[in-house]
Design a protein around this nucleic acid. Structure first.
Lengths: 225, 225
DNA sequence: CTTAAGTAACTAACTGGTGCGTTACTTAAC
DNA sequence: GTTAAGTAACGCACCAGTTAGTTACTTAAG
């Protein structure tokens, strides 16, 4: 009710105020993690700011304090998950491997990463539903992306030089294809499982799909059969 | 078309009440079409029932009358768009083509269909965000899906028999891969355009991608280079 | 008359965002 | 070292605008 009950009892009234030890970075981090989970599960429109606050063990006010609003929080989540995957790819150090091994390792890694981080896929889908506008300001990410394409280009060049790959393959098209064959299978795992009516996410099915993907990519780039 | 025939000034009392000529099927169809557009653009949670009603030139009560609710309407939209694509594939009559031509035609068709019907992709993404539960009752669709897989199997068999395809290719894996390489490119066109920083949806880019996709599939299934 | 199609007004619950006060920590003057 | 002033972190309660779903009613059609 709107009954005004102030003025009196100025001090010492508020009985059960839970106060957390202060740690700005930790709170910010918990909010970001909770937002990642929530946005991944329900999308931007479906996610609830109250729910994110509660999951974070914080409150709504802090979300607005640290991030400015729901959409800005979504931007922060998106940039984080994209940087995470690009950093993980970089950590593979594929330049140190023979070209064929490097490529197979990249296909395997991409698949494993999607499988271990399903939020990434749904978050990217949500970003694209909103025409990518939440990613437009992420300049650091664009740089990382370019570095990644360059790395794939180097692998291709080494493979052509050593005769195992054919020449003229566009690293971006290859990149997109490597991502596509894993991403599609996993992003559509629910509708796929229903429509194809066969084991879709069991160990055997996942193993078979990965093998098919590796085969697809190697046949695409190999210089001979 | 959406011609609205108003019964002008029927009784002089309520001055501006627009009354539509009665046509249950047409109204149902307009609601379904409006819902398709709206769900595709904003997702299940982002779509607004009021907006769908307005776009349909109808009102909210009719949505509850014909479909029962927002989620049931989403189910109806989903089943419709899936049946549409499966019917279009069937209409290709690929059984009448030589196996290599049939496969190339299927890759082209899949790409063209996604390009011409971008709602299909975002609707499928939304369905999967909700774990596919809105598709579970669509039994007619499961049958169509199986027929489609069988057709791809027949093409593969004919190709093996005539020596142009290698043996042992799983039609479902192939199917998924054909869809994947087109779907991924288009569903992630916004983030892809931003991150790769090059022409992504221009005519030249689309043509190049289609060519790459055809090449990928033919290399995957061909018996020789 | 009866039935089904159609419409507008309504409501209860929700939701993103804020106002405003409180508490912990830092800093600097004395 | 003590303390007062300043600042950032935090929390509760609330609002104003939505939103899915409903009720009550009107009207076309057979």
């Amino acid at each position: 009710m709107l009954v005004v009950e102030e003025c009196m009892t100025a001090q010492s009234t508020t009985p059960e105020r839970k106060v957390r030890k202060r740690d700005a970075d930790a709170t910010r981090g918990r909010i970001l993690a909770a937002a990642k989970t929530e946005f991944a599960k329900l999308g931007l429109a479906g996610a609830r700011v109250d729910e994110i606050a509660e999951r974070a063990g914080s409150n709504k006010r802090m979300i607005y304090h640290y991030f400015g609003g729901k959409e800005a929080l979504f931007c922060a989540v998106l940039e984080e998950v994209y940087l995470d995957i690009r950093n993980a790819e970089r950590a593979l150090e594929l330049d140190a491997l023979p070209p064929r091994d490097a490529m197979e390792r990249l296909v395997r890694f991409t698949w494993d990463y999607y499988l271990a981080n399903p939020e990434f896929i749904t978050l990217v889908n949500s970003a694209n539903l909103h025409k990518g506008k939440h990613l437009e300001g992420a300049d650091r990410l664009k740089l990382r992306q370019r570095e990644f394409v360059d790395m794939v280009q180097r692998i291709l060049d080494r493979g052509v030089e050593s005769g195992v790959f054919r020449a003229g393959i566009d690293p971006i098209q290859l990149n997109i294809t490597i991502a596509a064959i894993g991403y599609y299978y996993l992003t559509n795992r629910h509708t796929g499982g229903i429509l194809f009516q066969r084991d879709y996410m069991g160990d055997a099915a996942l193993e078979a799909r990965l093998a098919f993907n590796i085969d697809t990519i190697l046949r695409l780039i190999s210089s001979e059969d």
